[in-house]
Amino acid sequence: MLLAPPHKRPTGARRTLRSYIRINDPWVFVLPYLAGAAFLIVYPVGYGFWIGRDPLNYLQLFGDPTYWAAAVNTLLFLGVGVNATLLLALVLSGFFALRRWWVKALLPVFILPWAVPVVSAYLSIHWMLNSEIGMINTILRGIGVSSPPEWLNSYGWAIVAALVSYIWHWLPFWTLILLAARMAIPNDVYEAADVDGATGIRRLVHITFPLLRGTYLTSTLLAAIWTLSDYNTVHFITGGAPGDTTHVLATLGVDYAFDIGFIELGVSVGLTALPLIIILIVLLVRRLKADDGGLA
């Protein structure tokens, strides 16, 4: 039977079986999730599309250089920010998997950027980057750099500053995810490898990485999707300055919707990311299907 729990039942006890099956149905286990989705996802998402229905708004956006600058910056965040974060997280997950007391002691410290409220942390970084009185340039001058960069005053450095701040905030989270994935690799896989004489780097390349590949790729795709809605980083680090050159779609859209009060235009900015998101979700679904075989 399709709805049977993961074991076969003798066909004889049909009457009691029926009532028994109900409670053990897979349906029952996903019911709470489906309820939440029906109440709070289907309606708002549908309504979101409805708000962004006017084609004129898209025409206006596509004629605006600020929009295109934001689109390019968004791609920078996806291409550079996300990948740099995930690569670093992969390396660091190996570091934190080491069984040394001081490495373990460092871990709770390391998650601080994730735990500190982003508004304050990013505003603090904004002031650190001040070219005259910021801590970064004070340190640089202290070690003999005579004219350190004016971090936030030109597009190039400002977008770099925003990207680095993004990495700072998100690195702990993805490191923990990859660390958990590493921990999920059954020991017997390693033991078998030991028997085959694979140690050190070889073990890393031939066993750990292939097994982490699925999680790594899926995390990258999800990080990309979330980054599309990351408003805080750019809003508080650069605020779009200088001259609205460092916006991303999320800041531009949210500013239009909330700061200016043009909701439809703002939501339209968000919806222009849709082709990108759909590609990412399709890739993600493919990945998940590929994972279905699993390890076990």
Binding site: L123, H126, N130, S131, E132, I133, E150, L152, N153, A158, F236, T238, G239, A241, P242, G243
Partner: peptide, 21 residues
């Protein structure tokens, strides 16, 4: 005017003024 006045955020001029910059 300070080099950073092109990238200030809310309160930027208040702060440099109070710092006597």
């Amino acid at each position: 005017t300070p080099r950073d006045s092109i990238s200030w955020q809310s309160g930027g001029n208040n702060q440099v003024f109070l710092n006597q910059q």
